[in-house]
């Protein structure tokens, strides 16, 4: 049976609008028009134990709303949701004891106190037995390289250090499901890599299910085998990442660095050519023309110095996808 199951979840919000025209500010103080926004419109999916799912979509698409419903903070207007055999918002306390949440833009540590104090408090909140707490803390502190930070007040940590501590805080009670809302937002490459590494490890060794909402496509690419794309409150795509790529980005790209600038001309098999100074970016479809032949043709036609073959940038894919779906 699926660990997480959502069926036909809907959620609307009302926002009040200020009337238009003259004196609108004054009139707005007395009369307001209400507008109903569909944050989630008939969302259904299931996730099995140990899956690592990337949940992506533009701002305001409904990602956070879904996460909030799954973590029991928000009650949907209609629909059915069952997570580990519980309805999150009905048995909130029992439910949240077994999940962990990381919100990248919000802190769950006590700002003015040493990190260790926050951890000790979490130990009491989640009723973690002393010995397993010590063991777990040691394990996480080593993996995330935060042992030296434990006595530092949170306010003095850099963002990257703080995020590593946040993640440790979310994992202390060994949750079965982890919701990550933009965990890598604004942090440096080293911290990002450490974060991804521990997420992968938790998933592999303890079978923790993870749902990751992010705008960082590198996160998705390194961590998630399955992606769900949401836009305007609807689920637009749910499946393997490589299939998403195959559907929306069938092309490969070659970055050719030339010894001198050459004005673009057509090369047989190239779908699109873009030239910037002495760098050409050539897109081609590997199903029609194999890569080595494309390279050979380029080498024959151009004064090549260097050459890089890659997939289309996933950011571009998502952007294109949003565009096609009129988001």
């Amino acid at each position: 049976m699926a660990q997480i199951e959502l069926r036909h979840i809907c959620k609307t919000f009302t926002v009040s609008l200020r009337p238009e025209g003259r004196m609108s500010m004054l009139r707005g103080a007395f009369v307001r028009r209400k507008k109903v926004i569909k944050a989630l419109d008939d969302i259904s999916f299931t996730i099995d134990t140990g899956e690592l799912v990337g949940y992506i979509g533009p701002n305001g698409a409904g990602k956070s709303t879904t996460v909030k419903i799954m973590s029991g903070i928000l009650t949907p207007d209609s629909g059915y949701c069952r997570i580990m055999n519980r309805i999150p918002w009905q048995e909130r306390v029992a439910h949240v004891a077994r999940i962990g949440v990381v919100f990248g833009q919000r802190t769950q540590l006590w700002w003015d106190l040493p990190v260790q104090d926050s951890f000790d408090l979490l130990k009491d909140i989640y009723s973690i037995p002393f010995t397993s707490y010590k063991h777990r803390l040691h394990e996480l502190a080593t993996a995330l390289d935060i042992s030296a930070l434990l006595t530092t007040p949170v306010r003095q940590l850099s963002l990257g250090q703080r995020m590593r501590c946040e993640l440790a805080a979310a994992l202390l009670h060994s949750p079965r499901i982890l919701f990550l809302d933009e965990p890598t937002i604004g942090i440096d490459a080293v911290s990002k890599l450490a974060l991804r590494e521990i997420l992968k490890r938790e998933n592999r060794e303890n079978g923790v299910t993870m749902i990751l909402t992010t705008h960082d496509m590198d996160d998705v690419e390194t961590l998630c085998s399955r992606v769900m794309v949401i836009g305007h409150g609807r689920l637009l795509y749910d499946g393997k990442l490589h299939r998403l790529k195959a559907d929306y980005a069938p092309w490969r790209s070659i970055r050719a660095i030339l010894t001198e600038p050459v004005t673009p001309f057509h090369i047989e098999g190239a779908e699109r050519i873009k030239a910037e100074g002495n760098v050409w970016t050539v897109l081609f479809n590997p199903d029609i023309i194999p890569a080595h032949i494309m390279v050979e043709r380029l080498a024959r036609a151009l004064p090549l110095r260097d050459l890089v073959i890659g997939e289309q940038n996933i950011d571009e894919i998502i952007a294109k996808m949003y565009q096609e779906m009129c988001l």
Partner: peptide, 14 residues
């Protein structure tokens, strides 16, 4: 004001 009440609700506490 900031909506972090939500985070608070993520704790197994009353």
């Amino acid at each position: 004001n900031s909506g972090d009440v939500g985070l608070e609700l993520c704790r197994p506490m009353d």
